[in-house]
Design a protein around this nucleic acid. Structure first.
Lengths: 221, 221
DNA sequence: CCTTGCGAACTTACGGCGTAAGTCTCACTT
DNA sequence: AAGTGAGACTTACGCCGTAAGTTCGCAAGG
């Protein structure tokens, strides 16, 4: 009787995928700065150096994490009208980036895009091209949409509050610090706008996205 | 005869300002990751620990650097029409961010804004308010403009090439890697658009900025 | 059955990091 | 002349990424 090729072992075999998933989980929980090779090793039950059997170095690890995150973003559906598709993608991207705040400075700027990243960009380009956008307009559209989405996420990222109550409380303390009349417009917007009940910075996203989509529709003729 | 209060000493007195300027110079030259307290000390002729007489810690150092950079950005001129002012500010910001690429992920997200930062934001808000923008529209406008500007800078930051020739060369090698027909739209835009002579990603900035400004003008009625 | 090869884990070590804690020097005040 | 305090320096700690070398156990070849 031949031996099974992969007999069940006490410890689950470590794979690149398992390493990447654990790294994302760690970064989600404590931010990028808490993600070290030693801690990651501990999380998967291995010494730090063993991780190098699955990733080339920390840069490669980050590349893989980013590709994993790109894989979470909704792609345009086959027959979907471009405007709906771009809106869904934008909302999905924002949701994904809020789950993985550490990824925000990374996704646009990794030098080695993975397969999920390439598939994502190809799908977005394809959606616009099939909707009749010229090559030039497609490039413009992707640039302005991505700039807006990433930029908004970047600003949202480190607002040091999550609930409207916290927002209002902070705005109040800021406004109080400006009581001397320097920065009158900052004081005004803090007291009369941000401190309004129900204010949420996230709601600003819709305004800008509609503005951009309207502009593109206009340009597409 | 009384002694001069500050006799000329062999070494120039170290000040917070001198430390910050040196730090910015270091980061400009080699990126944020080359900026360490030891190297910064060396640059100003002092041991690392002596820097802590002028900055509270590295976070405080970064805060100060960001405020210095904000101080380089053009403010709206007193009587300037809002659209011109916002365009000038956007262009100026982009220029400043290209001088200080390391600042891009930092400017929007520091928790402790300095005086130049506050003055900048107050001036932008004031320009729009005086142009008749409602409080709500002003908040929308600032959000969409800043998102676009920072997002664009973020994407531009790590394009691994600076000249059109390099761009075209890279696009070509990428397109060659896609010869198998995966990612057809990426291949198309790389070969037929990016590789066109004279292409420069920076030129995309104008399109999106005009689109956003047009949309705001519309909304302002 | 034994050997051998090999991949995946482990161990050790190095140079660099931010910074806590303590010390020395010296110009200025009193 | 003595005292003070700021600004420099020294030492040390616990992290970090990773180069280099070692151990171990399975699987295939003789």
């Amino acid at each position: 009787m031949t031996r099974r090729t992969t007999p069940p072992q006490p410890r689950e075999a470590l794979t690149r995928q398992r390493v990447l998933l654990a790294a994302v989980r760690l970064a989600d929980a404590g931010g990028l700065e808490t993600l070290s090779m030693r801690r990651l090793g501990e999380a998967v039950g291995v010494e730090a150096m063993s991780l190098y059997n699955h990733v080339a170095n920390k840069e490669d690890l980050l590349d893989g994490m980013v590709d994993l995150v790109f894989g979470e973003v909704d792609l345009p559906a086959p027959g979907e009208p471009w405007r709906e598709a771009m809106r869904r993608r934008a909302d999905s991207m924002r949701l994904v980036l809020s789950r993985h705040r550490w990824a925000i400075g990374l996704m646009e700027s990794r030098a080695n895009p993975g397969p999920a990243t390439l598939r994502h960009h190809d799908a977005v380009l394809g959606c616009l091209r099939r909707a009749g956008f010229s090559l030039t307009l497609t490039a413009h559209a992707v640039s302005v949409l991505d700039s807006y989405i990433y930029g908004f996420a970047l600003q949202e990222k480190t607002l040091p509050f999550d609930t409207p109550e916290e927002t209002a409380a902070l705005a109040e303390s800021i406004a109080a610090g400006f009581a001397d009349g320097q920065y009158p417009y900052l004081a005004e917007i803090a007291t009369a706008h941000v401190m309004r009940p129900g204010y949420s910075y996230g709601d600003e996203f819709t305004f800008g996205l509609d503005l951009v989509l309207d502009g593109l529709q206009q340009a597409a003729g």
